[in-house]
Write a protein that binds this DNA or RNA. Structure first.
Lengths: 223, 223
DNA sequence: GACAAAAGTGACCGCAAAGTCATTTATACC
DNA sequence: GGTATAAATGACTTTGCGGTCACTTTTGTC
């Protein structure tokens, strides 16, 4: 009997299906298993950080055996990497790339888009991902780099462009934000640090902080 | 021969020195050894974080044997705790508690004191201590708590008081800073996050960021 | 039902590092 | 110099966990 995988001479005439026959597997189920591992790992990493998460626990949580995880990820680090990347991509998807309306001021545009998404930062574990990246970033420069490239850099660019537009139109009266686009986001980072690391018992309202910063930058007189 | 430690009957007449006699030890040298262990541990923890630092390496760096460390600290965590506490106390010592001169404006006072010390934040490894507290804070709530109590809380209180004074004197025209004293420090936390975790290749100038924030808060018109 | 191939299992291995302890060395007092 | 006590040592024990692998189960095809 010929081995079926290699086209044997006797079989040459028959039209072998061009697709590779797969036995003992269905791509959908494989994908689901993989996903359940990633989900379990995400939860564990969020709870305990990289060093304190064990593969065994992840496996238990995902309802699979330890060994299986190594069929999907060559090492613990690869699993971590996959988890973080997925979350960054997820965060990316729902980032507004709304366009500014023809007559809309930069300030109004920011209030309509950024303010809204920053008010939601603490739901959807967006802040928690930032927390993990911060916590493990020193140990995994590659992950910090991905985060920087896919989250921070685009945000900064957006802010800078808007700042320049506002400067040109006279909406902003100085170059502060153009020079230091970080200034707008500063309350967000500060809020994450305070709420996630330093003072969980007395969380600050990141959205409110951010709005106040916006007021100041656009020289709004406060109530 | 009576045991010298317990007062034996035969010795009752002799004036036993009231101080406990210590043999084979000099308190000074013991203190020095302890300090050299803490110093070595500080360096190691700063370089590699808690999980990646080994007691053996600390011992080598301190020039002592591994076992000795356990005579001074019951466990690795105790050592870590001691290190961080010492540094927080050190940071505390050189925190200016300068008084505001009779006719000095709040803004001038802040520029004379806080701005100066924040410009120095990256020297003297002040930012690195913050980094370690942030990195390990999730795993060691006690340390985050100490940091909060001894560093953040006093700073916030100072800012709040000054904001209220400035509000009263008319130097500030709104309650923003009184309500959100975090706003003043936000660029500092943001700067630490950016420089130490997320974008080491493109560090922001924390001092400059902070000064710009001060300008905005006091409604300075920029150059 | 027979088969092949992939999915899935969990006992096991190896190693690194925390923590121990019997022993040796240093020091202060007589 | 003798001795009691504390400091210091480092070989050893213990432990936890990442990673492996020989084996079993499931699944799709003929």
């Amino acid at each position: 009997m010929p081995k079926s995988t290699q086209s044997a001479v006797t079989n040459l005439v028959r039209n072998d299906p061009p697709v590779i026959r797969r036995r003992g597997a269905s791509p959908e189920k494989t994908a689901m298993t993989r996903q359940s591992i990633v989900d379990a790992a995400l939860a564990e990493f969020l709870e305990k950080g990289f060093a304190n998460t064990t593969i065994e626990t992840v496996a238990k949580r995902a309802g699979v055996a330890k060994g299986l995880i190594y069929r999907y990820f060559i090492a613990k680090e690869a699993l971590f990497s996959a988890v973080v990347q997925q979350e960054i991509v997820n965060a990316h998807i729902d980032t507004d790339d709304a366009k500014r309306a023809p007559n809309e001021s930069v300030e109004d545009f920011l209030r309509r888009t950024l303010v809204v998404s920053i008010h939601q930062i603490e739901k959807k574990s967006r802040a928690d991902i930032a927390r993990v990246v911060i916590t493990e970033g020193a140990r995994f420069p590659a992950i910090a780099e991905i985060y920087r490239r896919d989250v921070i850099e685009p945000l900064l660019l957006k802010v800078k462009r808007l700042a320049m537009a506002a400067r040109k139109s006279g909406e902003l009266k100085d170059d502060r934000l153009v020079k230091n686009p970080h200034l707008l986001l500063a309350p967000v980072w500060a809020g994450i640090v305070i709420n996630k690391f330093l003072d969980r018992a007395h969380p600050v309202n990141i959205g409110e902080l951010f709005e106040t910063q916006l007021d100041m930058i656009f020289s709004k007189v406060a109530a």
